[in-house]
């Protein structure tokens, strides 16, 4: 056991001296890792908040179904049956043509507005169940008998959903590209360290060091770069995010931001794990060549 500790101390010392020998390059690597993980962290927080807000939006989902003017009593009855039996509908309200006109009058403020022939159709206001598949529901409702059109609000929610999907794809692509870049930069830094220490490595091989013994200091160096980069990114995120939350709350109180500790702790673990992964993978890439 003490041998292990002693050997580990030797490796850590070697790794630190490798770090010092190429300080500027190592600091550059560190900043790249930190920036990558900062962007990844921001993206994860953004997605988390978007999902949270969307959930709220979904719970308030409402849809208006406009009926054809030519609808007859039998069709109307079968439509009501359809609405009542649909699992996506929580409640519904029938709006007559007169009621529709009245609400337009109130909305426009023209209380004495008279129309000879009311152009407004009859409609149903539907309150939808939380978590219902919105797109599928819209498709289904469009095919009900006697339905002429659906309220335009549906298009906006759909657009928002599409935007969120786009943001997710762009974010993932960004993280992928930046992650690959950091991986390459870490690999390159380690490769240069390996090159700078080639005499030491050749002597180590000569006196009978195993390959893993030779590799360990470089793995530790990569691990330290990844971990330190993640720590820097975390400090920036965890100190910047609460400021953003309070600012945004005063500007746009309707936007709900996640601020419970659990979410941020989860994020911390994710970033640290990414840092470790980047560091270890990066150094392993450049260590393949060290062999007997």
């Amino acid at each position: 056991m003490t041998d292990r500790v002693q050997s580990l101390r030797f490796h850590v010392q070697e790794a630190l001296s490798g770090f010092r020998q190429a300080l500027v390059m190592n600091l550059a690597t560190l900043s790249t890792v930190a920036i990558t993980l900062f962007i990844l962290g921001s993206f994860l927080l953004f997605m988390r908040n978007m999902n949270e807000n969307l959930k709220v939006l979904r719970s308030q989902l409402q849809l208006t179904v406009y009926l054809k003017r030519s609808i007859d009593e039998a069709d109307r009855k079968s439509l009501v049956k359809q609405i009542e039996s649909d699992p996506g509908v929580v409640s519904y309200k029938f709006i007559t043509r007169d009621q529709a006109l009245q609400s337009v009058r109130e909305w426009m403020g023209w209380t004495d507005f008279e129309v000879r022939d009311n152009p407004l159709p009859e409609s149903f206001d539907l309150k939808l169940r939380d978590g219902v598949d919105f797109d599928a529901f819209v498709r289904r409702a469009g095919a009900w008998p006697g339905v002429d059109d659906l309220s335009v609000g549906e298009k906006e929610v759909g657009a928002l959903l599409k935007l969120l999907d786009l943001a997710r794809s762009v974010g993932l692509l960004l993280v992928l590209v930046l992650g690959t870049a950091s991986l390459m930069i870490i690999a390159n830094t380690i490769k240069l360290t390996v090159y700078a220490r080639r005499t030491e490595i050749s002597i180590m091989k000569l006196v009978g060091a195993t390959n893993w013994f030779i590799r360990t200091p470089f793995l530790i160096e990569g691990l330290l770069q990844g971990l330190t980069g993640a720590a820097i990114a975390l400090v920036l995120l965890l100190s910047g995010y609460p400021i953003l939350v309070s600012r945004l709350h005063s500007i746009a109180p309707f936007i709900r931001l996640v601020d419970e500790a659990g979410a941020l702790i989860g994020l911390s673990w994710q970033l640290l794990a990414m840092g470790i992964l980047l560091g270890l993978l990066g150094s392993l890439i450049s260590l393949r060549r060290i062999a007997v």
Binding site: D3, E200, I203, V207, A209, F213
Partner: peptide, 24 residues
């Protein structure tokens, strides 16, 4: 020779033992 110029004589020699995980 192939000695490491940034280490002392002692460390250069001890190096060959350290890589075999010999006790301190």
């Amino acid at each position: 020779f192939r000695l490491l110029d940034n280490r002392t004589v002692f460390e250069n020699v001890a190096f060959a033992l350290r890589v075999t995980n010999a006790p301190a």
